[in-house]
């Protein structure tokens, strides 16, 4: 019963978690905002005078900022494209009746359980190493010069590593969506004269729209803040070639010990993430409406 009394009691009951959540989010946010307007460098201990927008000016005019911004977007878009396309194809494959399908499914999902640091290390040392890596051996076996992935195509290599981690997630969500497709719809399309390709294009893909939207939104949140893979493999280099915003903030605040500029970068990143979120919801959010 939604009486006034019951509602008051309900509010009282949920208030601890609401307060906890608010504190959890608001305190760090406010402190970041506060630090971002201070001249606060750990190499110069002592007073932390008010600096106005100086930190922001410094961060935004840093030539590395534009590069990092572009790299961030390229990374997000690249991984999204690979995981959505690859995930759809893998889901299609796993949806076929085949021998030991349970085992295949678990194998495909496995990379998702590997920690980012570990998977980046494995890729860096086992696959991409120009001397001992499997790819190097493969190239040599084919009579080609080994390709130093992390030095010559650092951003692409990181896109590859991160895609490998997120492919299982996309596959899993798209596979469940594919399995929820009413088989009578497929049969109806078959009777209507649609071949396998037309059925995929006109029935399956529209049906996957909502699941793909969920994948895009969730992945974007995480991909905007990719960090461990970069730290472990390229350290943002060579130069700034594989520095994204998260890594740039890390470099400012922890490598240069400048808490003020790091915080300003954090605030800029929050704003950019929100712009991306608004843009995404405008573009594909309507898929989520029933």
């Amino acid at each position: 019963m939604a009486t006034t009394h019951a509602r008051a009691a309900a509010r009282l009951m949920i208030s601890p978690s609401v307060i906890l959540l608010l504190g959890w989010m608001l305190i760090p946010l406010c402190m970041t905002l506060y630090f971002s307007v201070l001249r606060y460098n750990l190499l110069m201990p002592g007073d932390t005078p008010f600096a106005g927008i100086e930190n922001y000016q410094y961060f935004l005019t840093d030539p590395a900022f534009t590069t990092a911004l572009i790299n961030t977007l390229v990374l997000v878009v690249g991984v999204l494209v690979v995981t959505i396309v690859g995930g759809t194809l893998l889901a299609l494959l796993l949806d076929q009746p085949m021998w030991a399908s349970g085992i295949w499914r678990i194998l495909v999902i496995a990379p998702f359980f590997v920690m980012p640091t570990v998977s980046a290390l494995v890729w860096k040392n086992m696959f991409m190493n120009p001397v001992n890596g499997l790819f190097a051996h493969l190239f040599k076996a084919l009579g080609l010069a080994p390709f130093d992935f992390l030095a010559q195509a650092p951003l692409l290599s990181i896109i590859g590593i991160v895609s490998w981690q997120w492919l299982p997630f996309a596959t899993l969500i798209l596979l469940t969506a594919m399995q929820s497709l009413d088989s009578e719809q497929i049969e109806a399309a078959e009777m209507d004269g649609a071949g396998a390709l037309s059925r995929f294009r006109y029935i399956t893909i529209p049906h996957l729209g909502r699941a793909a939207t969920v994948v895009i939104l969730i992945e974007t949140i995480f991909l905007l803040s990719v960090f461990a893979e970069i730290l472990v493999t390229t350290n943002g280099g060579p130069g700034n070639a594989s520095t994204n915003l998260t890594y740039l903030i890390y470099a400012e605040s922890l490598l240069r010990f400048d808490v003020g500029v790091g915080s300003a970068g954090g605030v800029v990143a929050i704003i950019l993430a929100n712009i991306v979120a608004i843009f995404l919801m405008r573009a594909i959010g309507k898929n989520l409406d029933a």
Binding site: D182, E184, Q185, E187, A188, A189, M191, Y202, I203, P206, H207, G209
Partner: peptide
């Protein structure tokens, strides 16, 4: 050359 009407109608929901 046969057309079928299914029990669940099987309409294409996005069209």
């Amino acid at each position: 050359g046969l057309a079928m009407v299914f029990q669940s109608y099987a309409l294409y929901p996005h069209m």
